[in-house]
Amino acid sequence: MSQILRREAIYALTGLVTVLMLLEYFFWPTAQPWAETIRTWAIIVFNISLGLGAIRLLMQQSMNVQKRRENWQYSAMLLSLFVVMLLTGFAGYFATGLQTSNGIYNWLFINIYTPLGATLYPITGFYIFSAAYRAFRARNVDAALMLIAGCFVMLKNAPVGEAIWIGFATIGNWFQFTGQIPGMRTFSIVGALGLIAYGFRALMGKERGFYAGGE
């Protein structure tokens, strides 16, 4: 019994839901209310599941502080700011239904989150520059083709390319609108075929890696 609950029932649930989504779309439109209910449930479950990552991270940071691990001070600061933000956010939410109605939360949202969020990701801009200098080299025909296509697309994207020589834009446009299409379209087609194959394998119980704990 426990094996059925732990395995077979779960595979059956996955298969049933997959089939319902396919049936509703291809063969049986009257199943729409059921499919809608399942989708709404999935959205809510997805929403709740996002809390799992947060809890794991918080547990790890709390342990850092508790055990006075190296650089625990940073974890303490992270947790303090988290608590302030959480309390003020909930205060705002329960007072008006909108977390940003709390002044402190809103101030931190605008003046701490925004600049940090807008700053952290663009760091990759620096690294792409040094990567291009050190690694973007015409070592063989393959790499040379990639380099040529990349440079012409860059010169097409930057208005200066066209200002220097109109041909940069013309050639760049060719690479952008024609040159790269076979490669990019291949990724779409191969990805789609892969998804379908993987989906049907999962439906037949041959792919189980995505369940928690593997199997």
């Binding site: 732990r6 298969g15 839901v17 779309y25 449930w41 999935a42 049907f200 439906l203 369940y211």
Partner: peptide
């Protein structure tokens, strides 16, 4: 841990169904 496979099954099933179609 196995209990968590039920919600994962729901998410995966919906994802596959919608993805394929």
């Amino acid at each position: 841990q196995w209990v968590s496979r039920y919600p994962i099954g729901l998410l995966v099933g919906t994802g596959f169904g919608l993805g394929i179609r």
